[in-house]
Design a protein around this nucleic acid. Sequence first.
DNA 1: CGGTATCCGAATGGATACTG
DNA 2: CAGTATCCATTCGGATACCG
Lengths: 130, 130
Amino acid sequence: MSPSHTDVTCREAVGIHSRCRMVTPVLARIGDKWTILVIMALSEGSLRFNELKRLLDGISQRMLTLTLRTLERDGLVTRTVTPSIPPRVDYELTPLGHSLRVPISALGQWVMENLDEIEEARAVFDAPEE
Amino acid sequence: MSPSHTDVTCREAVGIHSRCRMVTPVLARIGDKWTILVIMALSEGSLRFNELKRLLDGISQRMLTLTLRTLERDGLVTRTVTPSIPPRVDYELTPLGHSLRVPISALGQWVMENLDEIEEARAVFDAPEE
DNA sequence: CGGTATCCGAATGGATACTG
DNA sequence: CAGTATCCATTCGGATACCG
């Protein structure tokens, strides 16, 4: 398979068989309501389930569980159970998970840098036209 | 406002007032089903509505319209109407839209490079454990 | 503590029909 | 050609209750 895809080739290849199609599902995942916040919360080290829940503030138990399961399934997070009483479960980013933080931060950086421009564009678009 | 956010500060700041919270909605948008494909399709120049529709292959008229409207509202795409018969409408990335392609491509690159690892992690996770 | 199970409203997105 | 309007199935995600 030829090198340097991702960009130039995308136009003629947006069809069914494009590799671009593989990017979207992953982006849809990390673009869901909680995934990024979970990854960012875990960026400095492991956290227990309820530590994570408190830190995220607003996430339901259900969604935290689902989000963590998906991250675990994709190999981005490890789940370590310590069978004590009360039980203890720690979540931690894998090297793969950490590596994802790089492009995510780049995207975050872009948003921060351009948020004002976006919001102004919206204000103009939403303005009652004369 | 202090510089160099996005990453290190995210942990203690994942709460309500964090700037991290502003990143998620934008990511949710570009992570939706069609936005990225539209941006990539427009990366090499302007396209008409139906050119875009054919190129994307699978998108409904409704979703293409909605996706383009949102991109236009956010200032990422311009919409140029030529009132001929039949009418002609061209869509083109703005400089802001083009600048977004950089971090998106980085993310796309990451996915391409790590898709195998992700899929293997899934296979392991889904395997009937003994 | 760290879940799972169930219910339900809200949002997403496809299909179809109609319009200037 | 480039939409808009309507309907409908599926998915997402919060609230609540219960369990080891």
